[in-house]
Write a protein that binds this DNA or RNA. Structure first.
Lengths: 184, 184
DNA sequence: ACTATTAGGAACCAAATGGTACAAAACAAC
DNA sequence: GTTGTTTTGTACCATTTGGTTCCTAATAGT
C-alpha cells in the first residue's frame, strides 16, 4: 500500500557500525555516515531519526554480531584449557586499528553520554561473564571471589590491549601472559 | 621593546591540557579551548598557531607534569614491595572520569594521527620502563624476558582500568589483583 | 616624546556541521 | 488507471566550525 524501501536496514546498520567503530562518533560526519550506510538524507532521517540514534543502534548491532560471536567462541570450547578458550580475546589486532568498539565508545563518550556508558558496560559485563565461566570451569576449586578477580584481570587486560593497540605499538605474544594470569 | 604578553603560557597550557584531557580533541571547540586557556583568539593564534598544535603541546605538558610525577612516585619507593610501588597506577579513579590522557589520546587519535600515536607510545613506554624497574628490583632472579612480560601485564592492566573507568562501572580493590600478577 | 614592535580583541569569513522541507517517484489496493 | 501512502532525493537552512584580518593598546629603547 506504499512505496517499499530500497535498502536493507540491517545492511545500512552494518555500514554505520563499521564507520563508527573505526572513526568514532564525533569524527564521523553525516556525509561520511550516509556514504557508509548507502543512504541519502531523506531515507536516513525518516528511518533512523538522527546520528545519535544510529550510534546507539550501531552499538546494538555490534553487540548482537561481533560480541555475540566472540562470546560464542569462548563458550563453545568448554573442554579445553582456559588460556585456549580465552585466546579469541587476544587474537592479532586488526591492522586498521579500529580496535574494540566497546572500548572506543567507553573512552570517547563514556563520561558525557550515560546511555552509551550503560550499553558499553552491559557489553563489557557480557564479556566478563563469559570469562568467569571459563575461569570457573578451569579450576572448580576457586572461590567465587577468586573467579571474579581473575576474570576481571583478564577483562582489564583485554581492554588495555585494545586501547594500546590503537596507537600501533609492537604486537606481543599473549599465551604466556594469559597463562601467567590464570595461574592460581 | 614591545608589548609584553599578559598571560603565562604555562598556565594557558595547563588549561588546554585539562580540557583536552577531559573532553578529547574533537569534542573541544575553539571557544571551549580559548575559555579554558583564558585567551582570546588573537593571542591564541599568535602564540600557539592552531588547535592541533596546542593538543600536541598539551600532551607534552601532561608528560612533564602528571606523568613525570607518577613516574617519580614509582621510582622513589625503591625499598618497598612491588605492589606498593605500583599502587600509584591504581589509585582511585577521578570522579570526573577524565581518565588517563595517554589512553584517551591513543583511542581517539591513535589510528589517524601518527604524531599523536608516537607521543602516546613514548609516554606509555616511560611508564613501562618505570614498571620494569620495580618488577626487576622486586625479584632480581627474574629473567629479562620475564621482567618485560610482567611489566607489560601491569601496563595493560593500567590502560584497561583507565578505559573501563571512563564508563563508570564499580570501583574494585586492586592490591589483590596486583599481587596476583606480580607473583612469579 | 617618539618609534618600533608585539599583544589583544573584535569583526569577519568560508566551509562544514547536523537537520528540515518538500516535491517527485514508486508501489499496493481498489 | 486512480488513489492513498510511503520512500527517496534535492534544495535549503541556521548554526557552528576553525581560522584570518586588522585596528588599537601597551610596552622598551632611544
Amino acid at each position: 500500500m506504499a512505496r517499499p524501501r530500497e535498502f536493507d536496514p540491517e545492511v545500512a546498520l552494518q555500514g554505520a557500525t563499521n564507520i563508527f567503530w573505526r572513526r568514532g562518533f564525533k569524527a564521523t560526519s553525516l556525509p561520511d555516515l550516509l556514504d557508509a550506510m548507502g543512504l541519502t538524507r531523506g531515507s536516513f532521517y525518516k528511518a533512523f531519526r538522527d546520528k545519535e540514534n544510529v550510534y546507539m543502534l550501531a552499538l546494538d548491532y555490534y553487540d548482537r554480531t561481533v560480541l555475540s560471536s566472540t562470546v560464542a567462541d569462548i563458550d563453545r570450547c568448554a573442554g579445553q584449557e582456559a588460556w585456549i578458550c580465552l585466546a579469541p580475546l587476544f587474537a592479532p589486532l586488526k591492522p586498521d586499528r579500529s580496535g574494540c568498539f566497546i572500548c572506543n565508545a567507553m573512552v570517547e563518550l563514556g563520561p558525557d553520554y550515560p546511555l552509551v556508558a550503560d550499553k558499553a558496560n552491559a557489553m563489557a559485563n557480557r564479556l566478563r561473564k563469559a570469562i568467569e565461566n571459563v575461569v570457573e570451569r578451569d579450576d572448580p576449586t576457586r572461590t567465587r571471589e577468586d573467579v571474579a578477580k581473575v576474570a576481571d584481570l583478564v577483562l582489564n587486560l583485554y581492554f588495555g590491549r585494545q586501547a594500546i593497540g590503537k596507537a600501533g605499538g609492537t604486537e606481543l605474544e599473549w599465551t604466556d601472559r594469559l597463562k601467567h594470569v590464570l595461574r592460581l
